[in-house]
Structures are given as structure tokens and as C-alpha cells.
Computed example of a mutant assay.
Amino acid sequence: MKSLGIRTLDKRGNVTIPKSFLKVHDIKKGDYFELWFENDALIIQKLPVNRCIFCGKTNDLLPVNISGKSICKTCFELLEVSKDN
């Protein structure tokens, strides 16, 4: 497990995670996490969240997916329009 270095809590109890770490691990704004303590260590687990592979929205997703990837209704409709042209 790779260290993120030493971090401190701000006045609101937030911890900043480096952008490079977020990018490498495909963590985006709105992702869900579960937190717990085990043997005096804070464990953070990213929970799977379906999102559109084109725009990243997590709502209005179609009930089907392709290779485990989802698409929202808006992007699907845009693809349909571009296919006709």
C-alpha cells in the first residue's frame, strides 16, 4: 500500500487527497466511500458507482450496459442523432 504522505484535518474535519492519486485511481467528484477503523488504522474503501462513460453522470442511466459500462439517456440520444447524420 502506497503512502499519501502526512495529512492534517482542517477545521471542518476534511482531509485533502492529492489530485495525482485521484487520477491514477479513477476517483471522481461524487464517488462514494466506506470508512472504518481497524487496528488503529483508518480504512477507506471506494464503493462502486455506475456512471455514464461519456459525461460521468450517475443519474438517468439506461438499464443496460456494455462490458460493464453504463450510458445515460442524454448521451445515448446524442449518439443516435449523430448516427443518423
Score class of each variant (00 low, 15 high):
Thr16Lys: 08
Asp40Cys: 05
Arg12Thr: 14
Phe21Leu: 06
Ser67Phe: 10
Pro18Phe: 06
Asn59Pro: 05
Lys23Asp: 09
Leu35Trp: 08
His25Cys: 00
Pro48His: 13
Ile6Lys: 06
Lys57His: 04
Phe33Glu: 01
Ile43His: 03
Asp40Lys: 12
Lys23Phe: 04
Asn14Ile: 13
Ile43Ala: 05
Lys46Val: 02
Pro18His: 05
Asp26His: 08
Trp36His: 07
Leu61Asp: 03
Asn65Ala: 00
Lys19Cys: 03
Asp26Ile: 00
Ile71Lys: 01
Lys2Thr: 11
Asn14Trp: 10
Asn39Tyr: 10
Lys29Asp: 12
Glu80Gly: 02
Thr58Gly: 04
Ala41Phe: 05
Ser67Trp: 09
Cys75Ala: 04
Phe76Pro: 02
Gly56Ser: 03
Leu35Gly: 03
Asn39Phe: 11
Ser82Gly: 04
Ile27Gln: 01
Lys69Trp: 08
Thr58Ala: 02
Phe54Asp: 09
Pro18Gly: 11
Asp31Arg: 06
Val15Arg: 13
Lys73Gly: 00
Leu62Phe: 10
Cys52Asn: 02
Leu78Met: 02
Gly5Lys: 07
Ile43Gln: 08
Arg7Phe: 14
Lys23Asn: 11
Ile44Lys: 01
Glu80Met: 07
Lys11Asp: 14
Ile43Asp: 00
Glu80Lys: 13
Val49Phe: 09
Gly30Phe: 03
Val24Ser: 06
Asn85His: 05
Asn65Ile: 05
Asn14Arg: 15
Lys28Thr: 04
Gly13Gln: 02
Lys11Trp: 05
Ile27Tyr: 01
Leu22Gly: 08
Leu62Ile: 15
Leu22Ala: 15
Asp10Ile: 07
Asp60Asn: 13
Cys72Ser: 03
Val49Cys: 13
Phe37Val: 10
Asp10Leu: 08
Asp40His: 09
Leu9Ile: 05
Asp40Trp: 04
Phe21Asp: 08
Glu38Tyr: 14
Gly68Asn: 13
Tyr32Arg: 12
Asp40Glu: 14
Ser20Met: 08
Gln45Asp: 00
Ser20Val: 10
Asp26Met: 08
Phe21Tyr: 14
Lys28Ser: 09
Ile27Thr: 08
Ile17Lys: 03
Thr16Glu: 15
Leu35Thr: 09
Lys23Val: 08
Glu77Thr: 06
Thr58Met: 06
Asp40Arg: 15
Ile66Thr: 06
